[in-house]
Design a binder for these strands. Structure first.
Lengths: 210, 210, 210, 210
DNA sequence: ACCAGCGGGACTCCCCGTTGAT
DNA sequence: ATCAACGGGGAGTCCCGCTGGT
């Protein structure tokens, strides 16, 4: 599973790979950060380019599709980051409930460290987008599906029945996004902590029961 | 079960408040709808005004604070709507788990009916906003706090301990937002259904236990 | 001479004359001050009304011609003020050169006291106006003519031949406006002082010669 | 006297700089003309752009500071023009009094030719600006200082003592601005002629005396 | 008669995302 | 792979009538 989407970024530059972030990568990083903070419509290209300090034309060179294409790529890279975080948690904590706790804890720290400025780039773009933004929607759909799948597999491995695992995975993603959102506007991490506590307890009960 | 839905949309009491929605109200409604579909930055004032068919200057007249002030008012009205919906569900279904089911079911219908275009206006603005947008953040913070409190009181009335009730309320809001988000980008209601199922089961177990 | 323009303002309110400035008068004063500081286009009516704290409709009531008519009236009142200042100087100093010195000195003080914000309202409007602004231009033409005439009469009384007196009056007005302008942008009164010195010396020579 | 005016408007040297005025230059010229006619606040950018027939975004491209920056540049170019005119007059007429006569005469012609629409761009902006408009004020201060210095040097070269020269220069600038202003609102050149006559006479007396 | 306010559009300046020539 | 050009909105707010209350 997760076999499509093979090696997202390193398409070009066979040799010059590891030498400084590279304009393209800096653009992606800048866009990602911007999505986290203000969403797609909230960012100006000029600001983005300034922050990546790249001249105007470079963007269209690397991303012929313009702002949208850059956003799509940034979204994909965001998923990779989240998955990596999840994997790290799962490696460290064999029990999914523990891993979930760790994951939510990490997110709280990340949020608080940014002064409650950074949210989830996926959620932000998801809410700004309309069904007409097909490229974005596709990327987003893919992103959430990947996340749910990854979590579902883990839960299934603990003995939950397949549909139950999938549904629980959906709830976990939902709770993560919703709690992050509440914590961000509140300017404190209580919402995330509360959500994690209740969710983890329920999950533990469920798994023990299975 | 399923009583006749007596008061679906109580728009017009015969004579009293029927004197046309009024420019101000039309503006609020237009903004609310826009926030649901595309968020604050995604809407142009001109489009808004066209939809409410009002001239430019009127907005400035009714909302000296401009777009932001209008958004704040729209947010407040959104909260009122949600609260009203909640109350209706709670009146009809005494057990919170049933009410939750009904509420999530209503949200699914609302979403699907709009062709998966309408999301939650609170969430959208929440993710677009930065800590600098103090007016918006305050309104949002207030809005979520009100929601959590309302849910928390209901849960406490069922025997949950105060902190547990509060935490569960937070989770419910989070799950609602996160599931709506996933369903919207997916273009189908599975995520909301799954989320509701798992959450309701867990809640029922919790309440029975208390 | 100077017989037209009899008693400009006190048209209405035969008895209630002296009781508080009155809305109309406050509007005129606010406009006059605004013209001095930023010119006609630089002022917004709303700001003006706020400063005079009068509601919107009042302006249109007192000045059916709107902003322009208010400006015209303000210009006339400005001329009256200048003439009054001139008269005061002439009464105190019989020799025109002394009076001129006093007048320019007063203007310097007035300018410096306002933090170099106040200029001459006549000049400002004069430069903003186009030949199409007939009402303004007429008022302005009248205003400068009145000033020149008044000065010319005084000079003629000192023995200058009529055309010489008129020409000298024109120069005096010109020098006043030009020096005020230079001092205002420089933020110090040197230009006015220098101008006054040279001009007064030349005038004295001229008069002694006549 | 009156040599053939060999280089009236040196627009096109055959090949070198004839490659169209360039958008930037057209914008400056349009702004300069607008400042002369109606001042900074009186001009709309759209009108300006139409007149220079340039698209909207170009302005921001060439003048990141927007309208103000364009105005500053226009002011500088105005000073250059005035200085050039002065130099031409001084080259042709060695005696400053003659040069002054020629200069004022040229200004009269320029004014009348425009149907009394064109004033001095420096003066107009000077009167509209407030101390808060630091960029404009600085440019203006600079402009007038340059003019005064140039005139002062010339006068000093004729034997006037340094401070006298400076003061006379100030008066000359003041008289120029003030006379132009009066002529413009009057719609005839009498004020300028009168001012020039008196001023030249006084200057001649002063120089002969030195 | 005087005042108040809601309503009405036409602009204001700014700046955005994008494309061609260089 | 850079810079000039391109228009099309972005929000804002201007100045002005009308229509009702007093």
């Amino acid at each position: 599973m997760t076999p499509p989407r093979p090696d997202v970024t390193p398409t070009l530059t066979p040799a010059a790979e590891a030498e400084a972030p590279g304009t393209r990568e800096r653009l992606i990083a800048a866009m990602l950060e911007a999505l986290r903070r203000r969403g797609l419509h909230g960012v100006g290209l000029s600001e983005l380019l300034a922050r990546a300090d790249a001249p105007k034309g470079v963007l269209y060179h690397h991303f012929p599709g313009g702002k949208t294409e850059l956003a799509v790529v940034a979204i994909r890279s965001a998923v990779d980051q989240v998955l990596a975080g999840l994997d790290r948690a799962l490696v460290r904590y064999p029990h999914p409930a523990d891993a979930l706790t760790a994951w939510m804890g990490g997110a709280q720290k990340f949020l608080a460290d940014s002064g409650f400025e950074r949210g989830c780039p996926l959620a932000t773009v998801a809410l700004e987008s309309t069904p007409q933004d097909t490229a974005l929607r596709a990327a987003l759909h893919d992103a959430f599906a990947t996340l749910r799948e990854r979590l579902g597999l883990t839960l299934a491995a603990c003995g939950l029945p397949p549909e139950g695992a999938r549904a629980w995975a959906t709830l976990m993603v939902a709770a993560y996004e919703g709690a992050l959102l509440q914590s961000r506007v509140a300017g404190d991490t209580t919402a995330m902590r509360d959500t994690a506590d209740v969710l983890v307890a329920a999950l533990r009960a469920q798994i023990d029961l299975a």
